[in-house]
């Protein structure tokens, strides 16, 4: 079987896949939305993206020092309950309130430790908002990262709450953060139960923090 086409394409694809997944990182770390309750979804995303890029490009930006403030900003822009519920899917209702709140906290930490660690690599890209679609209390905002090696489409899914629009998923080149975590956790819950999943998440967070 010919290796070339498949391997080249595979290379280009996997590099782009890897790149795009990597580009989730800075964009997930969207900073707080100023006057969030008044903003349209795309204005909310634009504001947040501009703000986070602003922080990263500060002349005196210090990764270690600014890491905790970035973490605070992520939690402001994201709807952690919606993310947790969406990731666990049908399992969400099957677990008790304590387990729900523990899962929500561990998921937030997982996403943070995953993404903050990657932040510094992607500060030069320009982000453009291309399209917005609102359906009742849900919205999708399509953006494009204009990068040297080709544009990377990044779509945000938002949910409207009383206090504004909040991001519950980021989709980069068709790969949804929520779907990927959902697929990853489902077999673990089936095999080891929710307590097994929580235990493994805790262990992994500790391991990554090293």
């Amino acid at each position: 079987m010919s290796l070339f086409s498949s391997l080249t394409r595979r290379c280009v694809q996997s590099r782009r896949l890897v790149l795009m997944v990597g580009l989730l990182l800075p964009l997930c770390c969207l900073s707080s939305l100023s006057r969030a309750e008044d903003a349209t979804p795309s204005a909310a995303v634009k504001l947040a993206v501009d703000k986070i890029i602003g922080i990263l490009r500060k002349p005196d930006f210090n990764f270690e020092r600014d890491r905790s403030s970035l973490s605070v900003e992520i939690r402001k822009a994201f709807d952690d309950v919606a993310m947790a519920q969406s990731v666990l899917s049908t399992n969400w209702k099957a677990i008790n309130a304590d387990q729900q709140s523990e899962f929500k906290e561990l998921l937030s930490q997982t996403i943070e430790s995953n993404y903050i660690g990657r932040l510094r690599a992607y500060t030069d890209e320009k982000v453009e908002v291309r399209h917005e679609e609102v359906k009742d209390s849900l919205a999708t905002v399509d953006t494009v990262i204009v990068a040297k090696n080709g544009d990377v489409p990044v779509n945000y899914k938002l949910r409207k709450r009383k206090d504004g629009w909040f991001i519950y998923d980021v989709v980069v080149e068709n790969v949804s953060m929520v779907s990927t975590y959902r697929d990853s956790y489902r077999p673990i819950v089936s095999k080891d139960g929710i307590d097994g999943l929580l235990k493994q998440m805790k262990a992994k967070i500790a391991e990554v923090k090293g």
Partner: peptide, 19 residues
């Protein structure tokens, strides 16, 4: 060439994924 342009993202996701 492709890998040289990538920013170690594979490792970041591999190392943080439960599976």
């Amino acid at each position: 060439v492709g890998l040289s342009l990538d920013k170690d993202t594979y490792e970041a996701f591999y190392d943080t994924a439960l599976d």
